[in-house]
Nucleic acid binder design. Sequence first.
DNA 1: CGATTTATTGAAAGCGCTTTCAATGATTGA
DNA 2: TCAATCATTGAAAGCGCTTTCAATAAATCG
Lengths: 340, 340
Amino acid sequence: MANLKKLAEHLGLSQATVSRALNNYSTVNQATRDRVLEAARRLDYRPNSSARRLATGRADAIGIVLPHQDDLLIDPHFADFLAALTKKLATYENDVVLTAADSAKTYQRFATNRKVDGFVISAPKANDERISVLSKLNFPFIVHGRCETDLPYGFFDIDNEGAFYDATKLLLELGHERIALLNGAPDLMFARQRLDGYKRALAEFGMQANPNLIFQNHMTVEYGYKHAEALLAMDPTPTAFLCSSTLMTLGAQRYIREQGLEVGKDISIISHDDGLSSLKTESFSVALTVTRSPIRDAGSEIADMVMKLVKGAPIKDLQKVVPVDLIVRTSTRAPKRRRS
Amino acid sequence: MANLKKLAEHLGLSQATVSRALNNYSTVNQATRDRVLEAARRLDYRPNSSARRLATGRADAIGIVLPHQDDLLIDPHFADFLAALTKKLATYENDVVLTAADSAKTYQRFATNRKVDGFVISAPKANDERISVLSKLNFPFIVHGRCETDLPYGFFDIDNEGAFYDATKLLLELGHERIALLNGAPDLMFARQRLDGYKRALAEFGMQANPNLIFQNHMTVEYGYKHAEALLAMDPTPTAFLCSSTLMTLGAQRYIREQGLEVGKDISIISHDDGLSSLKTESFSVALTVTRSPIRDAGSEIADMVMKLVKGAPIKDLQKVVPVDLIVRTSTRAPKRRRS
DNA sequence: CGATTTATTGAAAGCGCTTTCAATGATTGA
DNA sequence: TCAATCATTGAAAGCGCTTTCAATAAATCG
C-alpha cells in the first residue's frame, strides 16, 4: 500500500512536491515531475480518496436518492437515464452515489455530510420538498424536470407540454374526437405537463378533456394493457391513444390486437418514446408515430450541467428545456367513420 | 457548519468524549451521552464522512461498475437488481457507488483508492477478469452469478441450469421435439448455464441441441421479435420457445400473434421470469409458464452477503445458489400433431 | 482506612492528503 | 557586482474525525 509519504521518501522529495507533481501544478520542474510520475506508476500509487476529499473538501461524486416508498425510479426509463448520467460523469472522474431513503432528510444528511458535491433530482413533483430542502442548504442540484416553485434552481427538461400539444393536435387534425391519454402518475410534473399540452390542444379545437379518457398511473406494460381494456370497453370507444411511454404502448397494443383490432387502422396511437435501449420503437410491428426524446440524452446533459454547477456556474445558465420531435409514422391515421 | 471541535467546545467536553458518545461507546457516562446527543441534534451536527472514512479506513459504500462497451446492465433487469441492492444496503447505512469504465482497471483503482469497501460484480463471464483482479488485491466482492475459475469467491446465483433443465424437460414430456432457445448473450455465464440445462434435458431424451434453434443475444423485446420471426420462417417450425427473459417473450409473443398463431395452442412458451417490476407476467394475456426467481431478491440477498464479507465473514459462508421454481400455467401444452 | 479496581474523561497522535508560506539557489537587470 | 526577480522545493499546518494511552475521581475490598 503505497502512500504519498512513502512515495516522497522513495524519491527523496517532500510530500508537497510530489503532490504538486501529481496534480499538475505548473510550478514544479519538468524533470522532477517526470520522475515522480514514473515512480508513481511503478509503485502503483493511487491517492487515498478519503484523504484527498478531506483536504480538498470535494467529494468528486454526485448523489442520487431512490425514493423508498414507490418504485417509480426502478423502471427502464430510470435505468437508461442513470447509465447515461454515470457514463458521462465518469468522464469528469466523478462517481454516482446511490442511496435509498424515505424522505428529504437523506438529502440533507448527504449534503452536510459532504458525501457528494451535488445532487440530481429525478421525477420531481409539483412542490417537491427536496428542492426546498437543498435550496435552504444552498447545496448544488439539478432537477430532471421542472416544478412549481419560486426558488431558483437548475433544471433540464424536455418540452412535455409542447410535445403532447403537438401530438394531440395531430390527432385532432386527422379528425379524432375521442382521444385517450395514458399518462404517468399524476403527481409527477412531466405527467402534468403532458396533460396540460393535451388539454391545450383540445381547447384550441373547442373541446374539453373527458376525464373518463384519462388514465394516470405507473408507466408499465401492465397498466397499458389494463387501460386499453377499460377504454375499449367504452361506448363509443376512443379512436386514438396518446401514451406517455412505449412500455404502456406495448401493453395497450397487445390488448388492441387481442381484440382483433389493428393499430393505425382501427385505433391510432402516438407514444412518447424515451428511446429506451431495451425497447426500440423501430421494432414495433406497426411503425409508431412518436414524440421522441431519448432519456439518455437527458442523463448525459444533466451530467454536464451538474458538473458546471458544482464548479460555480450560475443557476441561470443551467436551465434548459429542449423541444421534442414529433415523428409521424403509420400508427396514426384518420379515424374510421362511425355514426354517433 | 458544525463540526466535532465546535460541538465539543460548546459542551465543554473533549472531542474524544463527544465522538465516543456519538458512536455508542459503552464507556461514556449516560448523562453526558444524553447531553451530547441532545446538543448534536440541536446544532444539527453531522460528522464529515471523508474525515470519518479517513480515520476509520471504511468507506461505508459498495461499488458497482457499469461496463462501458455494452449496454447489458442498462436494462430493466439491472434496474430492479440495483434498486433492491441499494435499498437493502441503505439499512446498513451503506451507499452504492456507481461508475462506468472500460476495464478491470477501474476496479483496481477504486479498491486501492478505498472509495468503496467492496464490490458487487454483475453479469460475470466465464473467465471474468474482474474476479482475478480483485482476488489478487484481496479486495472483497460478491458475484451475482458464477464463473469458471479456481479462485475462491463469494457469489449468489440462481440455479439457471436446473431451471432450464426442468423447463426443457417439461416441454419434452409434453411431446415437443423442436424446442427453440431464446437465450441471453452467449458470453454471459447465466446464458451458458441455461444452455447447459437445456442440453442436458435434451440428452436425457436422446436428443441433441439443434444450433439453428438457439439464439443468444441481448434480452430485449426487439430480439424476441426478431428471433421469433426467424424461427417461424423455418420448416418445420419449432413447437415451443424457451425464453430467457420476459422481455424477449413479449417480443416473441407479439410476432407469434401477428402470424395468427396462438401462444399455448400453436406454440408453447416457457419464459424465465425475473419478476421485473415494470413487466409483471401476471398481466400477460396468456398465463405464462415460467421459471421464476425475482431478481430483486438477488439484489437484497447480495447486499446482506457483501456486508457480511466486508465485516470479515469467510468466503465459504458466502456462496449461495438458490433453486428456481417452475410455475406451470397455460402457455405450455402438448404440440399439435403434424406429420413430419 | 489504604490499596486496588472501576468508571469516566482528556490529550494527543494519527489517517493521507493539499496548500500556504517561507526558504533556497539560480537568474536577471542596471 | 549587488540587488531584485524567478523557479523550485520543503516545512508544517491543517482538513475533521477516531482511537490509544494516560489521568483522574469514584467506588470497592480486605
